[in-house]
Design a protein around this nucleic acid. Sequence first.
DNA 1: TTGTAGGCGTTATCAC
DNA 2: GTGATAACGCCTACAA
Lengths: 347, 347
Amino acid sequence: MARATIADVAKLAGVSQATVSRALRGIDKVTPATRRKVLDAADRLNFTLLKSASALASGKTMRIILLSSGKLNEWFNSNVLQGAYEVLTPEGYDVSPASIIGKDEADHYFAELPKNRNADAIIISSFQLDAAMRERLKAIDMPTIGVNIPSESSCDASVGIDNFDGMSKAVRLLKSLGHERIAFAIDYIPQDMVYNTSQRTEAFLEAVEQNGYGEDGAAIVSADEHPQSMSRPQLAAELVAKLLSLPQRPTAVCVETDQVAIALVKELKHQHLRVPEDISVIGFDDADIAEAADLTTIRQNPLELGRAAARKTLQLLKDEPVDDPHEAQEPVLVLRDTTGRATRDEA
Amino acid sequence: MARATIADVAKLAGVSQATVSRALRGIDKVTPATRRKVLDAADRLNFTLLKSASALASGKTMRIILLSSGKLNEWFNSNVLQGAYEVLTPEGYDVSPASIIGKDEADHYFAELPKNRNADAIIISSFQLDAAMRERLKAIDMPTIGVNIPSESSCDASVGIDNFDGMSKAVRLLKSLGHERIAFAIDYIPQDMVYNTSQRTEAFLEAVEQNGYGEDGAAIVSADEHPQSMSRPQLAAELVAKLLSLPQRPTAVCVETDQVAIALVKELKHQHLRVPEDISVIGFDDADIAEAADLTTIRQNPLELGRAAARKTLQLLKDEPVDDPHEAQEPVLVLRDTTGRATRDEA
DNA sequence: TTGTAGGCGTTATCAC
DNA sequence: GTGATAACGCCTACAA
């Protein structure tokens, strides 16, 4: 049989469509008695509201777009998604994940954005927004919530990790352990699409200065320009080569992400350098793999970021005041097995 | 200004709504010239079709539900999502992820299912379907595609990994390496919700028999019933205790998943057993952490599973014949550092 | 508290 | 190839 409509329910319950609609959504004034009748009828007919029809009539899609830079199976993105899902779903919202890779796709997506009226809000995650994008974002009238994006002002609310605090903690740890020559290792950043890793270089520089490391106490080592396809081990090999050919070999290195850090550790061992005896390594993120590899790292919590972003989304949607509209998450240092005291005999 | 509608575009282009609709969707017969006019007008008005209106009128939601057992940030689930997203998005479909944890949520969801007409198809991943669920699944008239589910027949199409083949490869490896006493380690399975891990026990038993391991050549070690909250290290400790208190200590152990395998390795080392010199360990999945931890494992490819499921979904949606409706993925053995030759002096 | 009726923006079925 | 026009299923004033 064909799908039941609200009219069928109304007839069976002996009330009007309007009443059915109200009863089903649990709003408005409806007598408990009539509500029961309606609910029974709906149940008997196996009826649910058709989202598209509700959306059309009410103007609310009950959908929220989660736009991530990078693939949905990346550690960060999948955690943000789960976090957002957890808080949005109980409120009746669907979350519609979208993934954008590279500047071209981003430009395209943002150019189309203003036309779009197919969601009630949009959460954008890990984007380095340029002027054009920011303008598009302003042009749409749906609430925009940022996750780890630099230009907070282009959003109605945002959450993010404090990279500066994180890097600062890493550098202070190394200082405490007696490391006098440290470095920061980072992959080549093609188009500056991703926010975090580029900001972390800055953060390292700042931390290094604040902790009294001089010109030759701190170095930045980054990969040369290369196609996206470069394998992690290859990248690590290049970074290690640069690290070891520095005028003075550092006794500790901070790495942009856990992924790269782990590859680096492997390459270092391959070069017969002991970690952490000969050289300490600190990652960034505390992704699952960091624990598996016993990597000392700076933890950020994307799951919580997703939840927080979703909470703000809800507040925006309800026109409630957003508490702490631009919130920064404090990263925490996780000590594992890749860091140790600096060894003096190397000096 | 308010959002433009198809009527505005029609007026500006000097044609009828119907023509606009056809032109915009690139179907039907529309003169290139009029198409241009329409496209220009749409562009000038910043117009896009409203999904909910299209959906209501056409009966197609252009949405596909991806129902996963477990959280969206789990390795398997996020990869299936990415895979499905990759093939569905270019075809104009949204993927709407949903997560179900535990039997209660599953029962509830499936009970509501038949009412639902808010998607064009549903992909269900990693569910152990009981009779009631299967019935519900049949009751809905949208295409149902399974990913790693045992009762393929309840779906219109399915993809999955061949656990038996995978386990068989693991066991054969151990046999080649000269291991005469092997074991399979597995967590307690509360409600048999998740398909893979339960089937893997079976698969181990079968493989062990086929490879001539006798009664005391192979053992199953599983955790006692416990609350969901048990930590991985705790679990590993329990499993290792049972492993080491077997009548004869095995020289190799297959573990249900990489996660558990890695915890196990750590606990073994903690007990001053060398891996793989004293005992070999094989995981299952080849999740990211397996590489980070240098774990030998059986690889399955959920990304490809997601893609394949999505492709079948598309075929079902187009009423095309589905090629290989119930497809099994062949797992491959990945050799890393946690397996080695059996040492005779232990015997 | 409940009912009536108009409208939400598209698509689809006809004619032309 | 193009244009009217009737659905599509629900929400929301407004009236009762």
